[in-house]
């Protein structure tokens, strides 16, 4: 069990804090001969697998490095287009590493504001009177827990579905936010949180919550 990451969203839907606690790395490196038996496409300035799953390489995985050299978006390290490079049979055999692309800070901002509106839609479409927004969202590999304070700040924790004690953790994070962000005279409201004490205490709280469960990450 594990806690994956923490997001803090202000009342306008802006992301003011994000911390990745544990990122599972799913990477696969393989040597290919010509022609490539995967279908690749360019998506968001990255080269991703669009068809053909094998040996741990999944649809949606991004191309991370060619022959051990990290790629730069949709270009190789020396500035050639990857798709063109892989079309040339003289470059084979080639060793390519695939993995889940890391979220860029921009994508994280986008996701945070997307959740902000989903939260509102969740409460608007409620069949019952007086419903809050989304408090828990479950998928097969993680659970998203969201706690909205009376002042409209949302604390969001992504954790393993079996992880317990998340409610206490959310309230602890709120406490840390009030103590170390709000009481910091250099912190301006609604702006990104850049306070060292907040960082330290949040990490401490996450460690305690992680230890409270019997199994470490990856179990």
């Amino acid at each position: 069990m594990a806690i994956f990451s923490v997001y803090v969203v202000n009342k306008a839907g802006g992301l003011i804090y994000q911390y990745d606690n544990y990122v599972p790395r799913a990477e696969a490196e393989k040597t290919f001969s010509y022609p490539l038996d995967l279908v690749l496409k360019i998506h968001d300035e990255k080269v991703v697998v669009s068809f053909g799953q094998r040996d741990g390489i999944r649809v949606g995985h991004a191309l991370l490095s060619i022959n051990g050299v990290d790629v730069n978006g949709k270009f190789t390290a020396d500035g050639k287009e990857i798709i063109e490079y892989l079309k040339d049979s003289t470059n084979y055999p080639v060793s390519i590493r695939f993995g889940r692309a890391r979220l860029s800070s921009n994508e994280k901002l986008m996701l945070a504001s997307m959740f902000h509106s989903l939260f509102a839609i969740g409460s608007q479409l409620s069949p019952e009177v007086g419903s809050t927004g989304i408090e828990m969202l479950e998928t097969d590999i993680f659970k998203l827990h969201c706690f909205q304070t009376l002042t409209g700040i949302k604390f969001i924790v992504l954790a393993d579905p079996r992880q317990s004690g998340i409610d206490a953790l959310l309230r602890k994070i709120y406490e840390i936010y009030s103590d170390f962000a709000l009481k910091n005279p250099f912190y301006s409201l609604e702006m990104p949180i850049r306070c060292e004490l907040f960082d330290q205490n949040l990490k401490g709280a996450l460690e305690i919550a992680d230890k409270a469960s019997n199994f470490g990450p990856g179990s």
């Binding site: 509106s117 989903l118 839609i121 969740g122 409460s123 479409l125 409620s126 069949p127 019952e128 009177v129 007086g130 419903s131 809050t132 927004g133 989304i134 408090e135 828990m136 969202l137 479950e138 998928t139 097969d140 590999i141």
Partner: peptide, 18 residues
């Protein structure tokens, strides 16, 4: 409601009431 279209793997969400 058509906005509630998420990716594969999404199973449930819950609010305080439903």
């Amino acid at each position: 409601a058509q906005l509630i279209q998420l990716k594969d793997g999404f199973l449930t969400f819950q609010t305080s009431k439903y």
